[in-house]
Nucleic acid binder design. Structure first.
Lengths: 145, 145
DNA sequence: CTGCAAGTTCAAGTGCACTTGAACTCAAGT
DNA sequence: ACTTGAGTTCAAGTGCACTTGAACTTGCAG
């Protein structure tokens, strides 16, 4: 009779995330586990959904720190309900909407800017101060193939 | 009588990119300069447009290596014409279109997936093998504020 | 001509998100 | 009981995109 909890290897296999990454997420407080008498991690099935959420958010370009902050809003004691997740996803949906709108603006402005010669950053709409796509910190951003 | 070329400080001021970053870009072959008799860098005004392009591409999530590859297609000897830039931007526009489409798909699928409980990565549309948003390498992705 | 901001090189450091390696223990099948 | 794959910790390493610091030189204004 199989137990309901998952080993780190099982969680890794099901989520497509390496065990080392899962330990890293746990260290950073993004996911949680209990331990067996022999000190091995055991994950609730609900952690799988957390991991999924983390990967989705990362694909959208959110840092682990911000993901952790978002996940903190899920209930600590009990397994999150569908309602908990829906509430959380609503906020990410809004963020996605914003990001999509920004990228559309970027796209619609690109030809125009290059064509008109304003691509000098000073007066370009792409570099509007209000534009939240502005660079923020260093590091690689490998989001496109 | 001011010369037409820019010092690194001037290019930095006009582009909003730190001098250290400009040296870094040059080292990586993304931009080019000539030197004065005293070994200081002087930039053509057209380099400003290159820097702008680099920043725009970065905001979209493209790595410096891929940006460099794209910029290699600009003419080496002469200052790029508007046509050169338009041709280049057309490709990025296509890439932006793809990325926007993917994010829209992500958005439209998010509620559904979380609602239906499929957010277990296995069968989820968000993790379709054909989905090019799939993670590709490590590193931070700070694209949202 | 002198002073000093702005330029130069080179090596090393930073932050993020992990990965890898060493040395070890645990759990399950034969 | 023994082997073997999977798990454990901890320290160190990796890749990207830069930044910082030290030690030095240039170029312009007064």
């Amino acid at each position: 009779m199989k137990p309901v909890t998952l080993t780190i290897g099982e969680l890794a296999a099901r989520s497509g995330v390496a065990p080392s990454a899962l330990r890293f997420y746990e260290e950073r407080g993004l996911i949680h586990s209990t331990r067996t008498s022999g000190n091995q991690r055991r994950y609730e099935r609900s952690e799988l959904r957390r991991v999924s959420f983390i990967r989705i958010a990362q694909q959208v370009g959110v840092s682990l720190e911000r993901i952790r902050d978002a996940l903190k809003e899920l209930p600590e004691g009990r397994t999150p309900t569908k309602a908990d997740w829906t509430r959380l996803s609503a906020r990410w949906r809004a963020e996605l909407d914003d990001r999509i709108a920004l990228m559309q603006r970027l796209r619609d402005t690109l030809d125009e800017c290059i064509g008109c010669g304003c691509l000098s950053l000073q007066s370009c709409r792409l570099y509007n101060p209000g534009d939240e796509l502005a660079a923020q910190g260093s590091g690689p951003r490998k989001l496109l193939g």
